[in-house]
Design a protein around this nucleic acid. Sequence first.
DNA 1: GTCTATAGCGCGATAGAC
DNA 2: GTCTATCGCGCTATAGAC
Lengths: 193, 193
Amino acid sequence: MTARTDAPATEDTRTRLLATALRLFSVHGVEGTSLQMIADALGVTKAAVYYHFRTKDEITEAVAEPLVRRLVAITEEAAAQRRRGAQIEYLLTGFVDLVVDNRVLAAVFSSDPGVARAIEKSLNHAGDFKKDLIRVIAGPEPDTATLVTANVTLAGIALTGGSPELASVDDDTLREHLLATARRMLGRPRSRP
Amino acid sequence: MTARTDAPATEDTRTRLLATALRLFSVHGVEGTSLQMIADALGVTKAAVYYHFRTKDEITEAVAEPLVRRLVAITEEAAAQRRRGAQIEYLLTGFVDLVVDNRVLAAVFSSDPGVARAIEKSLNHAGDFKKDLIRVIAGPEPDTATLVTANVTLAGIALTGGSPELASVDDDTLREHLLATARRMLGRPRSRP
DNA sequence: GTCTATAGCGCGATAGAC
DNA sequence: GTCTATCGCGCTATAGAC
């Protein structure tokens, strides 16, 4: 029973491929990364890449999947908190951690239109995770003001993580400042008229 | 002296082309819009488009130019205000107006990596307008906390303008809420420790 | 099961006819 | 000022070697 598991030996190349794609996506963006680049970096041909993934969108989705999974998990766990304050606090810390851990990639995935399409089309939940996220932050039946604030905060955090001006800031410092900024926006929703 | 001005009769087609490109960019994004689409929408061939612009980047730049010009003007006028509070207020209202007037396009231009490249490579100031913008908001020699807040706010506003969840909100309402959000973030910088 | 070779098609771009 | 023709490259697809 040494080599008879369900997981095929392909996993290794597949994993290397995803790691390579992730690195290239972070540097050149998704649309800026060609299958040829990925193949060259791996030392194989384009067709070999095509054996593991049938389309570029599938690669994009596979690279994004761990991030989206983590985001969905954070959203669900946040929603499970009893107090509203705890829900928001849980989601903010989780979201900021995610962005800081993936800096450039989070910005690329938040902004690159090709990525948004690939993710929302395939990651089976049909791309509602973004809506769920906003709903936890803004609460049930939010007014427009709250919706706008939630959108600005989350979009701003995601993009700011990959901002070149802040590349020299270390992770812990960035995390702290992003959290402080977010809390200032959303921490005490009851203090609004 | 009817047809002997320096401005060639080409201006008309060029303008139509830019208007068409702007519309298509707003719908499909820049990378999602092919020269063929633009040509078809105009009823000409790709090569005809190439008579007016040498590259797709040039079209992108030309479409973005009025927005960037307005942004640069707003930044300069804001910097010319005497009091810090007036500087921030001027820049915020101008920036929000710009975003609301161009909703989808502002989001596309803020996020699409292809656009960022095209703009920053060609619009002669070498793309420093973004830095200038942040500098007015964050003030001279800003600390990291202020930099982060400024980045989150501006990026968030630009992206939120084009957010599908807020498409049904009318311009005036959106403007009001974006401004309120921004002011809450940046309006009173002295109230920070 | 993993890869190479090769081909089709669309896109951005160029050269040159009208 | 607009067109046809053509090129190189990127994504996709298939046939077949190992």
